[in-house]
Amino acid sequence: MARYLERGASWTALAYGPGFALLGFLAELFTGTTHAVAWVIVGLGLAAITAPWVYARRRFLTVQVTDDALWQGRERVPLQDIAEVTDVGAPTGARVLGGGWTTPNKYEALPIRLTDDTVVLAWAKDVEALRTALRDARTA
């Protein structure tokens, strides 16, 4: 069961390209000349280049807290390995969960102390909700 889930992107982003193409086609209807095939190709092309972006963001930027683990992208940290999530200072050079060098853009860092006394940086758009979910999952 997911106690906290933050997707990196939504699949609805795939509809933006075809929606743009539809608007372009409708605008052409008012000018008298329409290029329906061209607008279909544009819509499909935009959707095709958006799909890998959405897939990558969902794979590498999804944050999830389950009953037994914290998932940061593809990295899994068992909850029993987490010692503390509040009042933890982030030392310089702390490892970022998920495999990146830094926290992703538009995400905030949450320092977490592990049971081996190392500090790692978790990240989320809503750090307080992540902290609460981790605290609740550890005590349950």
Rank of each mutant, 00 (worst) to 15 (best):
Met1His: 07
Ala2Met: 15
Ala2Phe: 13
Arg7Gly: 03
Arg7Pro: 01
Arg7Leu: 13
Ala9Val: 02
Ala13Met: 07
Ala13Gly: 09
Gly17Leu: 12
Pro18Trp: 08
Pro18Met: 08
Gly19Asp: 07
Gly19Tyr: 04
Phe20Met: 14
Leu22Asp: 08
Leu23Ala: 15
Leu23Arg: 04
Leu26Ser: 05
Ala27Leu: 14
Glu28Tyr: 02
Thr31His: 02
Gly32Glu: 10
Thr33Tyr: 12
Thr34Met: 03
Thr34Ile: 04
Val37Ala: 12
Ala38Arg: 09
Trp39Cys: 02
Gly43Pro: 03
Leu44Val: 15
Leu44Trp: 07
Gly45Met: 03
Ile49His: 00
Thr50Cys: 04
Ala51Leu: 12
Val54Asp: 06
Tyr55Gln: 15
Arg57Phe: 14
Arg59Glu: 13
Thr62Glu: 14
Gln64Met: 13
Val65Ser: 04
Ala69Phe: 12
Leu70Gly: 10
Arg74Thr: 14
Arg74Trp: 14
Val77Ser: 06
Pro78Val: 05
Pro78Trp: 06
Leu79Asn: 08
Leu79Asp: 10
Ala83Gly: 12
Glu84Ala: 11
Val85Trp: 08
Thr86Phe: 13
Thr86Gly: 06
Val88Asp: 07
Pro91Leu: 02
Pro91Lys: 02
Thr92Leu: 07
Ala94Ile: 12
Ala94Val: 12
Val96Ser: 06
Leu97Asp: 06
Gly98Ala: 10
Gly99Arg: 03
Gly99Cys: 01
Gly100Arg: 14
Trp101Cys: 06
Pro104His: 08
Asn105Pro: 11
Ala109Ile: 14
Leu110Val: 09
Arg113Pro: 00
Asp116Leu: 12
Asp116Arg: 10
Thr118Gly: 04
Leu121Asn: 02
Leu121Phe: 05
Leu121Lys: 02
Leu121Ala: 12
Ala122Glu: 06
Ala124His: 00
Ala129Cys: 03
Ala129Val: 01
Ala129Glu: 10
Arg131Asn: 09
Thr132Ala: 15
Ala133Thr: 04
Arg138Glu: 01
Thr139Ile: 14
Ala140Lys: 05
